[in-house]
Simulated scan of single mutants.
Amino acid sequence: MAERGDKLKRFIKDEARALGFSDCRIARAEDMPEAAARLRDGVARGYYGEMAWMAETLERRSSPLALWPEARSVIMLSMNYGPDEDPRPLLARRDRANISVYARNRDYHDVVKGKLKQMAGRFAARTGAEVKVFVDTAPVMEKPIAEKAGIGWQGKHTNLVSRSQGSWFFLGSIFTTEELDPDAAERDHCGSCRACLDACPTDAFPAPYRLDARRCISYLTIEHHGTIPLEFRQAMGNRIYGCDDCLAACPWNKFAKAASEMKLAAREDLKAPEIARFLAFDDAGFRSFFTGSPVKRIGRDRFVRNCLIAAGNSGLASLIAPCRALLDDESPAVRAMAVWALSRLLPADAFATLARTRKPEHDKTVLEEWSGAGETLCI
């Protein structure tokens, strides 16, 4: 029996390596009371903002067995997407848009899930066991399970950290009815370091190991609908999709195998794209450019809304004309952020003239932006 188990584990890890996964570890499918308690506390405090599914799936998310009672083992896998260089210098290039490193290639859900299905199929054929694969979209607490499996530990920024991959990797899981010997859990190696916490531009960490998503730029640019709250706009800088600051600040990244052949490389045209190009996108242009990208999921209106905030933060007169063109956009959120961007880019007298001569506006949100911008100029 032990010999069969050893052979199965070798088979699993050989398959994972062949498919391009950076690491593969195994955990028992069992209750995780500490992780479930943290999750309930975060939901109770409202840390998840508009992500209502966190509360709706709370019970199923709290344990692998709650999701699938017949599961006995969880095969956790990671895939490296580490950048070849620190992405933070791009924040200083005011004419450029900063897209989170993980979103600069094909949608990882598709990439990782495809490989998981291949691996799960081969495993099921070999063992006769039942299998289910999950990549982020199902109610699975992947990070606590991955910690139990030994892939890494949940850092103070709440993301998983690995001694060999730093903070740059995706997670996927294969649940199975097969009993497999678990790997040793990883322990926390953060120590007294708080680099990730101090790096956050919006103070989204109320305490180490706690994230208030309502203040997180990743949440605001991806999950949040409507206009971005005023208090966070300037801090967003040129971040138009996600934020890498806390990940990039992690000292463990220096041990990551960023040049490894087992990683997803970025699209060249997403490494430092021009803001002006994105401001000109209509829906068809947006969908065409981001085909196969995770960015496509937020839709053109939210994306252009984010780009307008980056334009407003740029201080560049060259972006006035494309922002002004968006005052007539069909989306109220886009029109509202165009007003804010112009209030930052135009001289006070020019903006006052624009406000007096603008077309009639009936949307409350947009009117509030016009009013708020006018009050700001008077201060």
Rank of each mutant, 00 (worst) to 15 (best):
A2G: 12
D6L: 04
I12M: 01
R17N: 02
C24D: 07
R25M: 07
I26Q: 03
R28S: 08
R38M: 10
G42A: 15
G42S: 15
A44N: 11
A44Y: 11
T57N: 11
S63F: 10
P64C: 08
L65C: 07
W68Y: 08
E70G: 03
D84H: 05
P87R: 06
L90I: 12
R94I: 07
D95A: 15
N98M: 15
R106L: 14
R106Y: 14
D107L: 11
D110R: 14
V111R: 09
A120F: 01
F123G: 04
A129R: 06
V131E: 06
I145G: 01
Q154M: 13
S164W: 00
G166P: 01
G166K: 01
F169L: 00
F170Y: 11
F170P: 04
S173Y: 00
T177V: 04
C190I: 12
C190M: 08
S192V: 15
D198V: 12
A199H: 09
D203T: 10
A204K: 05
F205P: 05
P206D: 10
P206L: 09
L211S: 06
R214Q: 10
T221G: 00
T221N: 07
P229T: 11
E231F: 04
F232H: 11
F232N: 05
R233I: 02
M236A: 02
R239L: 07
A248Y: 03
A249I: 06
P251S: 11
W252Q: 07
K254F: 09
A256V: 08
K263V: 01
E268N: 04
L270K: 03
K271A: 14
P273I: 06
I275R: 02
P294A: 15
R300D: 09
F303P: 06
N313Q: 08
L316Y: 06
P322D: 13
D329E: 15
A333C: 14
V339F: 12
A341S: 15
L345N: 12
L345M: 12
D349M: 13
R358C: 12
D363M: 08
W370K: 12
W370D: 11
G372Y: 14
A373I: 03
A373Q: 11
